[in-house]
């Protein structure tokens, strides 16, 4: 199954503050192809999380329209899955039950034993894939940060998403775990072929993972550059040594310099 196409038709966001309305996002016009991996990179406060929340239907837009797979969308849709920066695992559920949560909310009725069993098998397969099968019966507090985020990725994947949104999913992890998570994510992306919208403030992360990097600047948030990444897939540990990789990173860094986000002192 192909991933969803995302279209933003002048979607914008204005917050009401005490001192009057504050524009958080200028009208944004952007199309994201089905089954592509697109990163949105920008400094804190540029509204990239707001943008994702609007696409996810978690926050209303103040104007414009958002279309998912051609349909106008204002609410959380089936086939959308989100991985948040905090893993938001439910501490009172075992790892396996956390992964099964989306099913429990929607599919399982108490007499539906058979689907319960196949769902369990599916959940175990996912945990196997991220190397956590042995931890299925543990509680979240027994896991490290990287393991917890892997569980939350499994919880997203079990929904069989056509659009996976990730809001700085590796932001809270240490550098090495973070790198490993990137390789894992690429493997998952190659296997599932859904659309990925990846929010990050790491330029390297965005370039390494994506087919396209959308660069945003703050106050008010706006898209300042849209860069297709010309790096072949599958990407490997050595991709970073590729001159094209370096060139893209430098290109984005230059954009931030021009925008005044990065300053030399």
């Amino acid at each position: 199954m192909l991933g969803k196409r995302i279209e933003l038709l002048d979607a914008e966001k204005t917050f009401k503050a005490r001192s009057g309305p504050v524009q958080a996002l200028r009208p944004i016009r952007l199309a994201i192809e089905e089954s592509s991996f697109v990163s949105i990179v920008g400094p804190s406060g540029c509204g990239k999380s707001t943008l994702m929340n609007m696409i996810a239907g978690l926050e209303p837009t103040s104007g414009g329209e958002i279309r998912l797979a051609g349909q106008s969308s204002r609410k959380p849709q089936e086939g959308n899955a989100i991985v948040f920066q905090k893993d938001v695992l439910l501490e009172w559920r075992s790892v396996l039950d956390n992964v099964l949560l989306p099913f429990e909310l929607h599919h399982i009725t108490w007499f539906d034993r058979r689907s319960k069993r196949t769902n369990r098998e599916l959940a175990m397969e996912l945990l196997e894939m991220v190397g956590l099968a042995a931890f299925a019966d543990k509680y979240p507090f027994e896991l490290s940060g990287g393991m917890r985020q892997r569980v939350s990725i499994c919880r997203a994947l079990i929904q069989n998403p056509t659009l996976l949104m990730m809001d700085e999913p590796f932001g809270a992890l240490d550098a090495l775990t973070r790198e490993q998570m990137m390789y894992d994510l690429l493997k998952i992306f190659d296997k599932y072929k859904f659309t990925v919208l990846f929010i990050t403030h790491s330029i390297e992360e965005a370039v390494f993972l994506s087919d396209r990097v959308v660069v945003m600047s703050p106050r008010p948030g706006a898209v300042v550059r849209d860069i297709p990444i010309q790096l072949e897939r599958p990407r490997t540990i050595d991709t970073r040594a590729n001159p094209a990789f370096q060139k893209h990173v430098q290109e984005i860094r230059d954009v931030f310099k021009a925008e005044g986000v990065l300053k030399e002192v």
């Binding site: 929340n53 996810a56 239907g57 959380p76 089936e78 989100i82 905090k86 909310l105 929607h106 929904q159």
Partner: peptide, 14 residues
């Protein structure tokens, strides 16, 4: 309940 958990619930269409 923190905002992110509420967002999770919403996104799972609970």
């Amino acid at each position: 309940m923190e905002k992110e958990m509420l967002n999770l619930a919403k996104s799972l269409r609970a």
